[in-house]
């Protein structure tokens, strides 16, 4: 399984890394963002959306569960924190989006159980210090491994 860890020393660096990742994403990609409150998940998503060319500011999806943005691809940003478990997914229409024509960025993906597609990019976000965050990317499958390889070349 491919893996890559990126350390960002500031919110701006997190945005820039997210933007580079966003530039590489393609139709149908699913990104699962793990990490505690304040680990940099939403900040990273803001960068990814910018990298996908979305003009609107990314705001927290916690209240409405899913926010939608339009870049060069449709972007669906979900926060599953408030869900009790996979059964609640039926109420928010996530499965249609996972099979759809855009990119899905999912915070608190553990709430979805095994309902995410087998091949998806996992990003473990971690708090290192007041402004430092680390992002460890991993995942199985051809598409995810190609993505990590491409990103490794960019980040070097």
């Amino acid at each position: 399984m491919a893996s890559l860890t990126i350390v960002c020393g500031s919110p701006a660096a997190t945005l820039a890394f997210g933007a580079r990742l966003g530039g590489l994403l393609a139709r149908g990609d699913v990104v699962a963002l793990h990490g505690e409150l304040g680990a940099g998940k939403t900040q990273l998503v803001a960068g990814i959306a910018a990298g996908l060319g979305a003009p609107d500011a990314v705001t927290s999806p916690t209240f409405v569960v899913i926010q939608h943005y339009q870049g060069r691809l449709p972007i669906h940003h979900a926060d599953l924190y408030r869900l009790d478990g996979p059964a609640d997914l039926d109420g928010i229409g996530l499965e249609e989006l996972l099979d759809g024509d855009g990119v899905c960025l999912i915070e608190w993906p553990e709430r979805a159980g095994d309902r995410l597609p087998a091949e998806h990019l996992v990003i473990a976000c971690a708090w290192l210090g007041p402004t430092e965050r680390s992002f460890t990317l991993r995942g199985a499958g051809q598409r995810v491994e190609r993505l990590i390889t491409a990103l490794r070349a960019v980040e070097r």
Binding site: R82, L83, D84, A87, D88, D90, G91
Partner: peptide
Amino acid sequence: RFGGVVPEVAS
């Protein structure tokens, strides 16, 4: 008990 609003439960 969920520490938030659960959409399906709310509906």
